Amino acid sequence: MRLGLTVPAFRWPGGPARIGPILGRIARDADTHGLASLWLMDHYFQVTINGRAEDPMLDGYAALSFAAALTSDISLGTLCTGVTYRHPGLLGKLVTTLDVLSGGRAYLGIGAAWYREEHDGLGVTFPPMAERFERLEETLQITGRMFANDDSPYIGTHYRLARPLNSPPPLGRVDTARPHPPILVGGTGERKTLRLVAQYADACNLYDAPDLPHKLAVLREHCDRLGRPYEEIEKTVLSQFKLKDDPRTDPAASVAHLERLAALGIDHVIVSLPAVHNENAVISLGKVAAEVADLVPAGR
């Protein structure tokens, strides 16, 4: 089982001047202490579950590029880019750039977008939900083509690309034979989101919640209907651990929980640590990662 880290907030001691140094330390610690991935939110404003809209929020891809320059092994992605934030051709180019400069370590994490306040605040169009999902499907088609080095014209309902040229092409994630950055679709909607996962994505991102077995069953049903092997899809969940930042923390309870997730077939757990800015927090999570490194998820 793989363990990753998400950093969803930047309201840290020392104010804006300390964000760069602290984030840099977090990225380096995650890379050197055995974590598989580092994820940032891709929002304009902080979301209400994590604080106030006025709290610090970094551009996801600029911050990941910063992290890429400080690391060598860890995979990098957003949880998740809203489809409304960037034109799909530019998004494909952006993720490819991160992939090339990081040595093939990028994910494309994407979803249908939901946070209207940030759109209105910065003057970004926020279409109705049905249209956002239409745009998400077209974006998955376009970025999939770009990652596969297919520059033939794309004519959709919302997007038209005369030549989606993507040079240089992405390197692909270094620990697999996949020829492009894995495409991860975030969200738990049973009718649309999980169908898009089954049809287009390499990975899903679900919540570590009581209904997780049901969501996985729905995903399997979509795969069966579309003729897609369910086992091909990397199952990730977003979880919150309440580890203390003391490196002597006993990881037994966290390991037991991860064993239960592995029994459900979860491949990759992405953890949010409430005090991630504390110096030993990521080191403590690395201890847990070491404990579950040989844990094989059900179905693998």
Rank of each mutant, 00 (worst) to 15 (best):
V255Y: 02
R228W: 06
H214R: 11
F241D: 01
L258P: 00
G227W: 08
A262N: 06
K242D: 11
R225G: 04
A253P: 09
H222T: 12
L243P: 07
A217I: 05
A217C: 05
L216N: 11
R220T: 04
C223V: 15
A256L: 05
L238G: 15
V237I: 10
K244F: 04
D250R: 12
L219C: 00
P247I: 13
R228D: 09
K242A: 06
R220K: 14
K215E: 02
D224R: 08
Q240W: 09
V218G: 08
D245N: 06
L243M: 02
E231T: 15
D246W: 07
S239E: 12
P251C: 05
Y230F: 08
V255W: 14
H222P: 08
A217D: 12
R248D: 11
T236Y: 00
A252W: 07
C223N: 07
L258T: 02
K215I: 01
H257P: 07
A217S: 06
R248I: 09
V255A: 07
D246G: 04
L216M: 14
T236E: 08
K235T: 01
Y230L: 03
H257T: 07
H214K: 12
L238P: 01
H222M: 02
P229K: 06
A256C: 11
H214S: 02
E221M: 10
L238M: 08
D250Q: 02
Y230M: 07
P229V: 11
